[in-house]
Design a protein around this nucleic acid. Structure first.
Lengths: 147, 147
DNA sequence: CTTGACCTTCCAGCGATGGGAAGGCGCATC
DNA sequence: GATGCGCCTTCCCATCGCTGGAAGGTCAAG
């Protein structure tokens, strides 16, 4: 299989396949002698599918590196896999809570805003105040996503 | 005020103040004649606080550009502000739902995983299958955060 | 021979931020 | 006056996961 076929078979774009190889997430694909094209087999495609599914569950490339090596290790303790998953769930929950707090605050402010032609606006008032006691509840200001 | 004092007064790092100026989020600060240092007044600091608060609520720099210009416009219709806020809430909710779906799936899988010395692991099995019918409920695979 | 689909590498960008180098400026102290 | 410290300046690089594009090699069909 060429990269395009592997891409269609796995659902991972050719660009990403090359990228994953470049950063060492997958081992460099074999090359054809005549034209230097990458050559993929079913095994490679399965790995790509694994990666795609893991990405869709929000795992980072680093985490997937670990998951892949556990997957390849027939003697892995399932404890190790579970640990990675649980850690990731905790991180997701943390980020969800942050965004939930943002959304709650904004919903409250928006609910207080007439949303008409008049200029008075509690949303702007909150932003302008910078005072963290105006909104509903917001003890520790959630930092923006990027972390 | 020099940039360091403005930074401490606003809670925005000096690095970010320069960056915000560079990308045009805030107007270029005045410069002192003798040493070319930036010079800030209360108004600038208030703007920086506004930005900081807006960032902490997850608004993008683009959205903040609009919020700032509405803030400066005494004749703004509060409708415009509310619209930006509501749109942002909707986006937050969308991302929360995606991450919630990831977390739900992972919690389910983790709950099915013994997490001991044995190698059998439903988490890996799910990742390996790539089949979207294994997990709990997961119609449209949520794409990872980045968009 | 040309066309078009494929493949290759390399380079640059996104968004918001942190880190650091290399150098100028100002003040205090020896 | 030299030294040192802390502040300021600009500039470039890294993050993370990916997308886009340029410039060029390869291959099969018309």
């Amino acid at each position: 299989m060429n990269i395009g076929q592997a891409s269609r078979a796995s659902g991972v774009s050719a660009k990403m396949i090359r990228y994953y190889e470049q950063i060492g997430l997958v081992r460099p694909a074999e090359r054809r002698d005549n034209n230097n094209y990458r050559s993929f087999d079913e095994r490679n495609v399965n790995e790509l599918r694994f990666i795609k599914r893991a990405r869709s569950l929000g795992f980072s490339v680093d985490e997937i590196t670990n998951l892949l090596s556990l997957w390849r290790d027939r003697a892995r303790p399932s404890r190790d896999v579970k640990s990675i998953a649980d850690q990731h769930v905790a991180e997701l929950e943390g980020r969800i809570a942050e965004m939930q707090a943002m959304a709650d605050t904004l919903r409250h402010l928006s609910g207080c805003c007439a949303g008409d032609d008049r200029p008075d606006c509690p949303i702007l008032a909150d932003l302008a105040s910078g005072d963290p006691t105006v909104g509903e509840r917001r003890r520790e200001a959630a930092r923006p996503f990027g972390g």
